[in-house]
């Protein structure tokens, strides 16, 4: 029999999991790029990879403290944003998307190559970098929480840190977007020539936005690796498109949209995959001869359908302004 209670419990875990927080933060960075400034960045996975590897390599190879490793990651992501932005931000929007998707793939392949195995761990990735972060944990050992949210001290510490960062990032983005700075970038999204004609240095603002959203993605990459190991395969283009899905689900030009979008995405993904796996084991799909491997893949099909329905019937996202849609060309 399918254990629905267990499915709900497993889905509940995702509600506050650090992975959800990481995706929320990465999607918020993308909201700054795509939703507010109109930069079509298809390389958010690259920014996340820089966060992950920046943190991992500085800890393992150079034995940096946590704050040092975080700063290395952020610094590397600023450099990455400059490399992407300097040649492309003067050009039309499409060029940035081509360059970012390629740059993110180049990064992933560099991290996968055998030549750098001593530093990057090649296809096996990196692990064993969590000590520094665990040592900062002020919470005494023990079991905390209840129901699906029962966890040990490290997990609690990680969740507190992850969601605190998400909240701070949201407040930051919210304040920026209601300021004159936000007005300029939103103007750039609508028509950059008009903004240029009003005396604003469009290139400079686009660069600031690219760096800010990229740094958000990088910090998200660091949160993402704290509950797991660094595996280069995680940073393929599918990661970027999951983040886009989350962004569109929540509402592209919103602050809370990416957060709620991420929660819905992960809860839904967990519930659907839990259900399909258990239903397959209980023999519900024997008629169509579905194997357990096939059942594992079905979750993305079902999630895809659900998301398509959402985008068709609520294209502005959950938090998006319905009024805006009336004027979309």
């Amino acid at each position: 029999m399918v254990d629905f209670w267990q499915i709900i419990q497993n889905a509940g875990v995702e509600l506050i999991s650090p992975t959800t927080a990481a995706y929320a933060l990465a999607a918020l960075g993308l909201a700054i790029h795509f939703g507010f400034t109109g930069l079509v960045n298809f390389g958010q996975a690259g920014f996340m990879a820089i966060g992950a590897y920046g943190y991992g390599i500085s800890t393992l190879t150079f034995h940096f403290p946590v704050w040092g490793a975080v700063l290395v990651g952020i610094g590397a992501s600023i450099v990455f944003a400059l490399i992407l932005g300097v040649p492309t931000l003067r050009l039309r929007a499409d060029y940035l998307s081509i360059v970012t998707i390629a740059a993110a793939e180049i990064l992933r392949l560099i991290f996968t190559t055998n030549t750098l195995e001593a530093v990057t761990g090649s296809a096996d990735g990196l692990s064993g970098y969590k000590g520094g972060f665990a040592d900062l944990n002020p919470i005494p050992d023990g079991t905390y929480g209840f129901g699906p949210w029962t966890m040990n001290a490290y997990d609690l510490w990680l969740r507190i840190v992850a969601w605190t960062i998400v909240i701070i990032a949201c407040l930051l983005a919210w304040q920026l977007m209601r300021s004159p700075w936000g007005r300029v970038v939103k103007g750039i999204r609508e028509d950059e020539d008009a903004v240029r004609a009003l005396g604003k240095n469009v290139y400079f603002y686009k660069m600031q936005s690219l760096i800010l959203g990229g740094v958000f993605g990088t910090i998200a990459g660091m949160i993402f690796i704290l509950p797991r190991a660094i595996v280069p395969a995680n940073y393929a283009t599918t990661l970027t498109f999951f983040i886009y899905t989350i962004l569109l689900l929540g509402g592209a030009a919103t602050i809370l949209g990416p957060v709620v979008g991420s929660i819905i995405f992960w809860v839904l993904l967990s519930a659907v995959s839990g259900f399909v796996a258990r239903a397959q084991a209980a023999g519900w799909f024997d008629l169509i001869g579905m194997s357990s491997v096939q059942a594992g893949q079905t979750r993305f099909i079902l999630v895809g359908i659900v998301l398509m329905l959402l985008v068709i019937f609520r294209p502005q996202g959950i938090f998006g302004n319905k009024k805006e849609l009336a004027f979309v060309k």
Partner: peptide
């Protein structure tokens, strides 16, 4: 080139020169 998804008032405000709040950190 009206900035379509900005309000009319925001369109206007964007025209003003020398706004301190247009600096990212001051914002």
């Amino acid at each position: 080139k009206a900035l379509s998804l900005l309000t009319v008032l925001d369109n206007m405000k964007l025209g003003a020169k020398g706004q301190k709040g247009e600096n990212m950190f001051v914002a």
